[in-house]
Amino acid sequence: MNSAISVRHLTKDFRIGIRGLKLRAVDDLSLEIPRGQVYGLLGPNGCGKSTTLKVVLGLVSATAGEISILGEPSATSAARRRTGFLPEAPYFHKFLTGRELVRYCAQLSGVAASDLDAAVEDALGLAAMKEAAGRPIGTYSKGMLQRIGFAQAVVHDPELIILDEPTAGVDPVGSASIGRMIHAMRDKGKTVVLCSHLLGQVEQVCDRVAIMDRGKLVLEGAVEDVLSRRDRHVMTIEAMTPAARSAAEAALEAHGAKITSVTHPRRSLEDLFRELVTGSRDA
């Protein structure tokens, strides 16, 4: 019962063409996604991660295997009531305003009429969309579409939130904003499943990751565990002179250690961009 999502031996085949050729999208996948964590599902395009999410949500039927969401069999109405979903490149009815869309989704998700207004305003506030909520969705930018999509996914206060490529096509500032929303959800004790191939962002926001390739699971574990190399160490040194470096090398060699590379630390281009662009917007 500790798993938010439990996938056991999931296989999904698609029949293609008139001859019904079999295309295996997911091959004997087993996953346990723990509750209260941000979980990244990674992999190249076509590796089966979106298909896995669709099967989990009951949008596509499994060829074989068992899936449960929060202890309930997946694809049941009860399971979906506790789940929020933001699909890849979401498209919503352009004539609705952002507030109307979130309200519509809240009603479909079974939010009680007495709680409706508060739930809608909370979700819009969380997605930083209150100011633009009165505008038709047709006038929204890509980043705003993703944010309103996030608001509709969380309006019914789900325990599990599934985000399929939430930052695809969004600029780094918008991407960072979505990252903050994900952290806010984790702080509330929600489970967030993030499907993406933007590795930098996944590394920043996820607690655990699974990497898929050609429909199979190739790696799974805590981000810290899978990324750290226990046999290597990094030290950041200030004001190092050639003499200090020689002395350090000699001291390390005396203990059987060896310096393999010395470089200057770099900040990422994304950090630089966010610093410059957010800074200029704040000014």
């Binding site: 949008l59 998700s109 999509g149």
Partner: peptide, 10 residues
């Protein structure tokens, strides 16, 4: 794909 968003709800 609006159907995806809607049918993922109860």
């Amino acid at each position: 794909k609006t159907a995806l968003t809607l049918l993922a709800k109860p």
